[in-house]
Simulated assay, not measured.
Amino acid sequence: MDDNRVWSFEESLWTASPEHYEESIDDECLMVLPEPPFVMSGQQAIEAVKKTPRWEKVEISERQVARPQEGLIVVAYHVEASRGEEQYAAYCTSTYRWLSHENWRVVQHQQMVPLKSNG
């Protein structure tokens, strides 16, 4: 998967339908998110997404892509997302594994929201 496709895929996980999300998340996926229960399996994350409105606008910056071995892609980035008046920003990582031609699944995802300084 080339870099443009990687970033289109990652953005789609924030904005696309819950059905697309479910098709893209591996059964063995593990996630760490900045809200309880914090640590989730792929199935728990899929269920949570079904109950959450999708983001309307997503801007991804500070993009990094690594390919540590064939069939594995790791991305790290900063995201700013919004829906209506709600705003969200986090640093994220995702890891994809290759299953078959044009078929990649997320096996790891983490979001970290930086603490605000009191300065």
Rank of each mutant, 00 (worst) to 15 (best):
E56A: 05
P68D: 10
Y91G: 02
G84W: 13
Q44G: 12
S8F: 06
E35R: 14
T15W: 01
R105V: 08
Y21D: 00
T15K: 07
L13N: 01
H20Y: 15
E47L: 10
K51D: 15
E80Q: 15
P114T: 06
E23G: 05
S82Q: 15
L99Y: 14
P34D: 09
V113L: 09
P36Y: 04
G119C: 04
A89N: 12
T95G: 08
K51H: 14
V39C: 13
V113N: 07
Y21E: 00
H20Q: 08
E22I: 07
W7Y: 03
C29D: 05
T52W: 11
G71E: 05
V6H: 00
R63H: 01
Y21H: 05
E80C: 10
T15F: 03
I73A: 04
S17Y: 07
R5Y: 01
D3F: 01
D26I: 08
P114A: 08
W55T: 01
F9K: 00
P53H: 12
M40N: 08
E62K: 15
I73Y: 01
N4G: 00
G119V: 04
G42M: 06
S17V: 09
T95H: 03
P18G: 02
E80Y: 12
Y91E: 12
T52Q: 14
T93M: 10
W98G: 03
E10H: 00
Y96R: 08
Y77Q: 11
M112H: 13
Q64T: 15
Y96K: 07
E70W: 01
D26W: 12
S17E: 09
R97Y: 05
I25T: 15
A16Y: 14
Q44N: 10
M31C: 10
P37S: 12
W7V: 04
E102Q: 14
H20D: 08
A81V: 09
L115C: 07
S61A: 14
Y96N: 02
P36W: 06
S24M: 08
C92I: 01
R97N: 06
T93K: 03
V49T: 10
C92P: 03
Q111H: 06
V74K: 08
A48F: 06
Y77R: 07
R63Q: 08
H78M: 07
S24H: 06
K57G: 04
I60T: 00
L115I: 11
P53I: 14
C29N: 02
Q87L: 09
V58N: 05
Q110M: 14
W98A: 00
P114D: 07
S61T: 15
R67F: 07
Q111A: 13
A66I: 13
A89S: 15
V79Q: 13
L72F: 04
V106P: 06
R67I: 11
Q43F: 11
N103W: 09
K116F: 03
V107Y: 00
L115G: 00
Q64Y: 06
V32M: 14
E47M: 11
T95R: 07
P53R: 13
T15V: 05
E35S: 13
I73D: 05
N103C: 13
E62I: 11
V79G: 10
H78T: 13
S8P: 00
Q108P: 01
H109C: 04
S8W: 04
I46A: 02
H101D: 14
Q64H: 15
A76F: 12
E80K: 13
K57W: 12
L30S: 14
E28G: 15
M1W: 00
Q110P: 03
L72A: 12
E85H: 13
V79W: 07
